[in-house]
Design a protein around this nucleic acid. Structure first.
Lengths: 207, 207
DNA sequence: ACTATGATGCACTCGCCAGTGCAAAAAGGA
DNA sequence: TCCTTTTTGCACTGGCGAGTGCATCATAGT
């Protein structure tokens, strides 16, 4: 199952397809438009992907991989955390929020959400490639911190879930569902507030 | 601007249109299908709404009103709260979670999210009719509790935001984005955990 | 230079669907 | 009952877009 055709064209198609799909929606997006915007002949797209559905899956998979990589890099900031976990958590929080709010983040969630009923298998792509690995990685980091006595928690997965909820929960409405750009200061404030609440519940030191 | 036609037909069209739009997506949904499923002639739809876009807006507006009503009823449970706020908060949390997870909730969010780029004005419909009023109402209730000394908080809106985030943040993935039915017990557990964390941060009594 | 593989441009088919027109049938109010 | 308004069924148009076929061009390896 080796990928057919020139790899540079292939990647140009994937990137363009994702942006067009996200901007116009799967049904409204025309292969002619994607071909034009990617500076490629329509036939080339069919050479590489066969049909429109396959192109959608491929484009979404690629973007999901990208999103996972960015988020994993953010969570990994917790690896070298010594002493007070608050600054590290805030840094990670900010990075996670930035991933959530960048163009790819909004577009990925929108496209996924929109086309899920038509393509139920997108669920496996997204969950397996982006969502689950990231929260599990975060849970791992929190477990280590707990073991080091810097957090007080029994269920790392549950704590990770709540931390991500606190971080990203308000962003949809704050960012007007992708139509508004959230300023850096606001992101930092959200991260700070989220970590503050999180540490009230799971912080190691008694108050 | 009196609504044309028989009102019963009108409502049947609205309900059916919403379900079909949510199930198939705006572009894939055909007016013939909606007409058939609503047991109505296609012409009747055009009599009432003029064209497909108007129908989408009307259907989405109606469902948003419904969602707001349900959520407001849930939040209002905090009105008659005396003594320990925990049980009341958990009750409200459960109700809010149920609203979020019922068929209408999933469908409304999906459809809104999916068609937002094509119809930017959906943002005003959803924000004005559903999202904002509910979180503001919740903020009002929290402010009253704070004034009564049962919570310790300075910014009711921020607290309301965090509480909703804790309640609903994990539901998207737990419910597999609408493809899985969350059992009642799990909802109750989520509500309990959310309120627990919330009270660690904003509870009135010192620990 | 030669050849194979992929890229391009263009024209074309085929199916689908929003929206329309018309004439007949209900429904409802006086 | 009569008249008006709404609903119905059906046939039709017009446009749009996925996917194909074919001939031609570019490119890379040998």
């Amino acid at each position: 199952m080796s990928p057919r055709g020139r790899p540079d064209k292939r990647e140009a198609i994937l990137r363009t397809a994702f942006t067009v799909f996200a901007r116009e929606g799967y049904a409204q997006a025309t292969l002619d438009a994607i071909a034009a915007e990617a500076r490629v002949a329509k036939h080339t797209i069919y050479n590489h992907f066969g049909d429109k559905q396959t192109l959608l899956r491929a484009a979404l998979t690629a973007e999901a991989d990208l999103a996972r990589a960015k988020n994993m890099a953010a969570v990994d900031l917790l690896r070298d955390c010594v002493g007070d976990p608050r600054p590290a958590l805030e840094a990670v929080g900010l990075r996670v929020i930035q991933c959530f709010c960048d163009d790819g983040g909004w577009a990925l969630r929108r496209l996924f959400y929109a086309e899920l009923p038509q393509f139920p298998d997108l669920l496996d792509i997204i969950e397996g490639r982006a969502a689950s690995p990231v929260t599990e990685a975060l849970a791992d980091r929190l477990a280590r911190l707990a073991l080091a006595g810097q957090l007080r928690l029994t269920d790392p997965s549950a704590a990770a879930e709540q931390l991500s909820a606190l971080l990203t929960g308000s962003l949809e409405s704050r960012g007007r569902f992708g139509t508004r750009r959230i300023p850096e200061d606001e992101m930092r404030a959200v991260a700070r507030a989220a970590v503050d609440t999180f540490l009230h519940a799971f912080g190691g030191e008694r108050r």
